[in-house]
Design a protein around this nucleic acid. Structure first.
Length: 426
RNA sequence: GGUGAAGUGGGUGAGUGGCUGAAACCACCGGUUUGCUAAACCGGCGUACUUGGAAACAGGUACCGCGGGUUCGAAUCCCGCCUUCACCGCCA
């Protein structure tokens, strides 16, 4: 979430940011509302502090009097302090109420979009910043979509997944399972080579962690929830990995922190339908390798470019046609200041599939997380957080199967052969 | 799941109602000394909010796992919760 001090200083900028996200003028009104409630909060705090100060001093005077045996005088003061308690109580109540109101409004405010974020309403308005330079692959008429290929070569059994759990929970088998495992190892090795420390985190997180990265309360419906234990199944490794840094003050010399991790990701994805959910296009459980960085505020955009380049290199090694989009204000995630999406061309479906999202959250997450660093002068500041998929498996598998299909099998790109242990699935 | 013990600053750890935002030691930072290193000595060393200030800084309040309560006054007493450790049970 944004800092109240930032909103106070850059009110106009924050309101313009909301306009970029297509908020109505009425919704934008919460910025002013927030600041006026915060004024009440501040004033209440000042009053409360001075009254507490007074009562503290009286209390210690009472102690002194008892010690000297001035019982009567002490009892008189006790009465006086006792009367102050009522005022203290009501001030405390007002302080808490205004703090909560401010907090609730802060939770409603999305991140301030970066200057380069364009206007627009949906993914149709995203700006292509790196288009696929070559020709898009054209497959023969007999080409199959990946769900048919998966069946033909016994790679993925969607029906069995449905039987065991429900739709959207694919079961990988034989070469399909091996391909999954190979991709995971390939992506992890590439991340390690780029300097990311590998993490295997818990797959269930508590409420504080879900709040820390902004899944709560913004995207409550996204996550599977285990009521009995009050745990959430992670929708991405971003949640447990970023929460490593919750309530942490790093030394500036520890920046940037670079972590990566492979986890299954669980998403309820309520409301999806039609061709979008065929096969691997949209599933409730998929594997993803996530890269996360915590940086000095001055470097975060340089690091964002670096992470984008890392993902691009992966797709190049996999020989998949891709393009990079800069998300417009209407499509930009709640917590993000700037996001680049990667889309891979799925030749049999003849459509682009989103396979990665790389974002700079600036201080939006770190403010919630209380993730800070100490600079050379021992001053404390919020750090910047970034993350990106490098990469999400399911749709990569879809594109790999479709684009590389030949008469008698599926060619494995050369970079992946050592990991999968074969040149062709047949 | 059962029983018992414990949660204090970066770490160890003292503190059972006012003189404790918190001893002491270690770590860390600055200084003196020093051929270098080490040692010794001196000083500093939490976070959040808030008031004043351009700032340095100064004042106030809160925080001793979390939340409530008792009291003029709570790290200290009471209640609830969480976590950790030990032993038992179960178990990959």
């Amino acid at each position: 979430m944004l800092q109240t001090s930032f909103i106070r200083e850059k009110k106009q900028e924050v309101e313009d940011g909301l306009r970029k996200r297509n908020y109505s003028e009425e919704e934008i009104g919460i910025v002013s509302e927030l600041l006026s409630i915060d004024d009440v909060r501040k004033q209440t705090q000042t009053e409360l502090d001075s009254l507490r100060h007074e009562s503290k001093q009286l209390a210690s005077q009472i102690g002194e009097m008892y010690k000297q045996g001035n019982k009567d005088e002490a009892n008189g003061l006790r009465e006086k302090v006792g009367q102050m308690k009522e005022t203290l109580k009501s001030l405390e109540g007002r302080l808490h109420a205004s703090e909560e109101q401010v907090q609730a409004l802060l939770f409603k405010l999305p991140n301030n979009p970066h200057l380069s974020v364009g206007t627009g309403f949906s993914d149709a308005d995203n700006e292509v910043v790196e288009d696929w330079a070559g020709d898009l692959p054209v497959l023969p008429e007999s080409a199959m979509p990946h769900w048919e290929l998966a069946k033909k070569y016994n790679l993925i059994d969607f029906d069995l997944g449905s039987k065991i759990t429900g739709s959207g929970f694919p079961l990988y088998r034989s070469s399909g399972a091996k391909l999954q495992r190979g991709l995971i190892n390939f992506f992890l090795d590439e991340a390690a080579a780029a300097g990311y420390e590998e993490i295997i985190p818990p797959l269930l997180v508590n409420e504080a962690s879900a709040k820390g990265t902004g899944q709560l309360p913004d995207k409550e419906g996204l996550m599977y929830y285990i009521e009995k234990e009050d745990f959430y199944l992670i929708p991405t490794a971003e949640v447990p990995i970023t929460n490593i840094f919750r309530d942490v003050i790093l030394d500036q010399s520890q920046l940037p922190a670079k972590l990566c991790g492979h986890t299954p990701c669980f998403r309820r994805e309520a409301g999806a339908y039609g061709k979008d959910v065929r096969g691997l296009n949209r599933v409730h459980q998929f594997d993803k390798i996530e890269i996360v960085q915590v940086t000095h505020p001055d470097n975060s955009y340089k690091v964002l470019d670096e992470m984008v380049a890392h993902v691009a290199a992966l797709l190049q090694k996999l020989e998949l046609p891709y393009r990079v989009m800069r998300l417009c204000g209407g499509d930009l995630g709640f917590a993000s200041a700037l996001t680049y999406d990667f889309e891979v061309y799925s030749a049999a479906q003849k459509r682009w599939l989103e396979v990665s999202s790389v974002s700079n959250f600036e201080t939006f997450q770190s403010n919630r997380l209380k993730l800070r660093y100490r600079d050379k002068d021992r001053k404390i500041h919020l750090a910047h957080t970034l993350n990106g998929s490098a990469l999400a498996l399911a749709r990569i598998v879809a594109a790999l199967l479709e684009n590389n299909q030949v008469e008698d099998g599926i060619q494995i790109p050369s970079a992946l052969r050592p990991y999968v242990g074969m040149e062709k699935i047949s």
